[in-house]
Design a protein around this nucleic acid. Structure first.
Lengths: 115, 115
DNA sequence: GCACATAGTGTCTAAAAGGATACCGTGAAG
DNA sequence: CTTCACGGTATCCTTTTAGACACTATGTGC
């Protein structure tokens, strides 16, 4: 997406502002994958084909800054970093599931039409 | 958002592909406003402060191309163009409402935290 | 001594998104 | 005669996004 200026806050309706938090090519997918539980950095990378290391890092940092996910670093070698949904992230579950349901039932016909 | 190349189709999961259809700074807001019924171009413009004429036109065209909204032109002067949700657009209602609910209950605390 | 795995960071660049501004035709109103 | 409303277009320019690629540290295994 476009991307909304960081925290314009007072502008727009709640839908618009909610969007700014999950805006980014990979954020929703990341949140969706984390619905099923904690994942490590490279596990996420493997689950989301196409994402680059840099983008994954960026998106995870933004999600963390917005309080939607939790990042836990274990002081080990090799490093171990685990990502999981925060309570707030989990509260997005209805949105994520609604989106997936919609995709599952509508995408095939839409893509067929576009072809 | 970034914006996904037009119809890469076979890539990514259903969530990811569903996202590409509602990607764009204003699309979800437009769909949300149309949930309540048909609106004319300038009505939408007034309901969505901050959108420019060009962007509104672009987003409406893309939504139409993806079969989510219907555009009806009346041959009158001054012109009258009405936009409404297609059946497919209406099927997004659960997603839109889930997003709004989430925003209403979570945005204030998130924005307070960010401040 | 070499490569490997983890979880990154840095830089550079291309492409896309989106904003600003000006302009268009028509008919009715003043 | 001028202006207004409507629903756009056209052009230009800036910002944002995100992809490629190289590089890092550390400890372990071969």
């Amino acid at each position: 997406m476009p991307r909304v200026l960081k925290k314009p806050s007072s502008t727009g309706c709640s839908v618009e502002r909610a969007l700014s938090l999950i805006d980014g090519k990979w954020k929703i997918v990341i949140l969706y994958k984390l619905l099923r539980g904690t994942l490590r950095f490279n596990e996420l990378r493997r689950l989301i084909p196409g994402v680059t290391q840099r983008m994954l890092t960026n998106q995870l940092r933004e999600l963390e800054a917005d309080g939607l996910i939790v990042r836990v670093v274990y002081a080990q070698v090799p490093p171990r970093v685990e990502y999981s949904l925060s309570a707030r992230g989990e509260s997005l579950e209805p949105v994520l599931l609604a989106l997936k349901d919609w995709g599952d039932t509508n995408l095939s016909s839409i893509e067929a039409q576009a072809a």
